[in-house]
Computed example of a mutant assay.
Amino acid sequence: MASDTRATDDPLEDFQLRSIDLLGQARRVWVTGNGPAVIVMTEMPGISPHVARFARWVREAGFTVYMPHLFGKDGATPRMPGALFTMIGGCISREFKAFQANASSPATQWLRALAAFAHKECGGKGVGAIGMCFTGNFALSMMLEKSVLAPVLSQPSLPLNDPAGMHIAPDELAAVKARMDAEDLTVLAYRFDGDKFCRAARFEAYEAALGDRFQGRVLPDSAARPNTQMKNPHSVVTLHLIDEEGQPTRAARDEILEFFRMRLSG
């Protein structure tokens, strides 16, 4: 198995850093590519080289990537103690409500505005969105924006204190389910079987709420890249992805890209 530590920072030189006004506040967003828009929301502790690699795969599949700054240092490889301080900051931030079940992150409001903005710029049928770990649930709340047609939840980890909790307000969840039924839409979700931050109970809760509109994929722990700085199998399309033929994590990545093509490109 080839080594892929990505131990050096990524300068993100092939992305354009833009300041976009969303709900009256300027937000930093990294943009690259052409085609229908896909919002790539980073996992903790920020836009790492592995997250940027995934964004490039989305770009190379024929999409315009909008990758908003949410926390951390953009392009940096996670290092202690800085990564720990970022995670603590995210946990106590009112923008994320990391410990609240049945409540949507306030950040999803401006992320929905970003989706509408991106759709206006790029055109096409609609917008894709993927959240990872700390932002893993966000793509579902973003479906309240009518342009979002292809939501993906990768190891959704909030709320941190309730393994069966759903990080979305009940009225929003009901509205999303009604929209999915009316428009025949689905949400893809991924986790590793032994993930301590995204357990089986969370997928079971989403399946109970959304029925067959929720398409959960559970990968064996053996499919995770070993010997990384995070031994808990967790990051399906970034840190723990094995970019080799026949690997379940690469198959998951390819399924996500095909999901975006199907929903956004026709």
Rank of each mutant, 00 (worst) to 15 (best):
A2V: 08
S3A: 08
D4Y: 09
D10M: 06
G24F: 05
A26D: 11
R27F: 01
V29I: 13
G35I: 03
M41T: 06
T42Q: 08
A52V: 08
A52E: 03
R53H: 10
F54I: 00
G62L: 03
T64M: 07
G72E: 08
G75K: 10
P81F: 07
P81A: 06
A83D: 12
F85D: 05
C91R: 15
R94I: 05
A101C: 12
N102D: 15
A103W: 13
S104Q: 13
Q109T: 12
L114H: 05
A116G: 13
G123P: 12
G124K: 11
M132V: 14
C133F: 10
T135F: 12
A139D: 13
S141C: 13
L144C: 08
E145F: 10
E145P: 09
S147H: 10
A150S: 10
S157E: 02
N161F: 01
P163A: 09
A169Q: 03
D171K: 04
M180Y: 06
A182T: 02
E183A: 08
R199W: 07
R202T: 02
E204Q: 14
A208E: 01
G211V: 12
G211L: 08
V218W: 10
L219E: 06
L219P: 10
S222E: 15
A223R: 07
Q229F: 15
Q229H: 13
S235T: 08
S235P: 04
D243P: 06
E245Q: 10
A252I: 04
R253D: 01
D254L: 14
E258S: 13
F259R: 00
F260E: 04
R261A: 11
S265I: 02
S265H: 00
